[in-house]
Computed example of a mutant assay.
Amino acid sequence: MSFILTLANLLSIAAAASGWLKLSDGPWSAREGLMAVEDASGIVMVGGRANLGLAAQHDVWRTPNGSSWERLPDAPFAGRAYHAMLSHGACIFVMGGQTVALLGDPFFNDVWRSCDGGETWDSLGHAPWQPRAGLAVATHNGRMVVAGGCFGSSIGAGRKFLNDVWATRDGASWELLTANASWSARSGPRLVDFNGRLLLLAGEVGFTADTQLGDIWESGDGATWTLLTATPAFSARSGHGVVNAGGSLLLIAGWHDAKCLHDQWLSEDGVVWRMVSNATWACTADACGRFDFWPVATSSGLLLTLGGSNAYSTFGKLWAETWALPLLGGGRPLRGGSVAMH
């Protein structure tokens, strides 16, 4: 009889305790604004801002389980953070984002595609939309949809926020769905395909405590939007995670009012939300809360979160951690932490 614990065994033990298990710390460097997706090869992670936020990365990493990571050849595109990354069809797409630059335009609108799990990349040229970071993306009805974002200097009123929405089937040909959506221009909203409709959640219009948003909007086509709720039960925030897992929406942590959050909220309709935990990452204090991480709901029924930040300014705590939470029936947290589900 073997006493070797499998990953599933460890996750079962974790679920019976705090709900979360740290799978790894590195080997990639601590960073914020990274992106990751699951495809047939595993979970592929690209980019982010590391070295206390001073360096935008273009490294590519892949893992089958969140525990062991393999470094792939660096991507041929410029290092970037707060970009878009999608698994669409049999390929992975990376587009937009920003670099760290003292001179020139630090924002991108280039589009890249990998059809071999992040090992090689092809350029699809530049999209017709304004170069931007903090853009929201989702796949919907066979197309990739891009919404919102920002560009320009972060000093004073130099930063410009966007509320246009674009769609593409292949990353090369784009259609403008609306130049001015009903929701206010913003950066860092989260966009998900939920029950056949697009939902856009929260975001920011600046980098101070009073510029975070919490409203939720719905669209069937990306062109016409309806307000679902202006004031959901969770606080306004940015840098949060949102996943559609098994027919439930799970919203995770983020940044609000100069606080790094560690809460989780669940909804079956995008309107009514209830807190299911205030101990994400087995954390119950602002010091270990985080934002600008990236979540992935895997086909094996796990919620993974990668990296993130815990600092009001760029020059602060960054993480290289990968955490896992088992999802009951593929959607609900099996045990979310200090607040029991009911």
Rank of each mutant, 00 (worst) to 15 (best):
A147V: 08
L135M: 14
E218H: 11
L191D: 04
A136I: 07
L201A: 10
L162F: 11
A157L: 12
I216K: 04
L213W: 03
S187A: 13
A181S: 01
D215R: 03
L199N: 10
G203M: 05
N195K: 15
F194Y: 11
F207A: 04
R132K: 12
R169T: 07
P189H: 07
E175R: 14
P189Y: 08
W183R: 05
L199G: 10
V137W: 10
A167G: 00
L199E: 05
F161K: 08
L198Y: 01
L200K: 08
S182R: 15
P189T: 10
V205I: 14
S173N: 04
D210H: 10
L135V: 14
L162K: 06
L200I: 14
E218Q: 14
G142V: 09
S184W: 07
K160D: 11
S173C: 06
C150Q: 15
G220W: 03
V165F: 06
G171L: 01
I216F: 01
G188M: 13
L201S: 11
A147Y: 08
D164H: 03
A167R: 02
F207E: 14
P131N: 05
G188R: 15
P128I: 02
A172K: 11
G222K: 02
S187C: 14
T139C: 12
L199P: 08
G149S: 01
R132T: 13
T211A: 00
P189D: 01
C150T: 11
G188I: 08
G158W: 05
V165C: 10
D170L: 01
G214V: 01
L201P: 07
A209T: 12
T211D: 05
N195A: 14
L213N: 03
R159D: 00
L135P: 01
E204Q: 14
R197E: 13
F207L: 10
S219R: 08
D170C: 02
A167Q: 06
G220H: 05
L176G: 00
G149Y: 03
T211C: 02
L135S: 10
R132A: 11
A202M: 11
G203T: 04
W174I: 01
E175H: 05
M144S: 02
A138V: 04
A133F: 08
V146S: 09
G152I: 03
E175W: 00
L201Y: 03
G158N: 14
R143D: 12
G134W: 06
R186M: 06
S182V: 15
L176I: 06
R197N: 12
W183S: 00
P128V: 02
H140N: 11
G196H: 09
W166I: 05
N163C: 09
W166E: 01
Q130P: 06
S153Y: 00
T168I: 00
G171Q: 04
A138F: 02
G220S: 10
V137F: 10
A147K: 11
W183T: 01
A202Y: 07
W129V: 03
F161H: 07
L201D: 07
N141K: 15
R197P: 08
G171M: 07
D221L: 04
W217N: 04
C150P: 02
L191R: 03
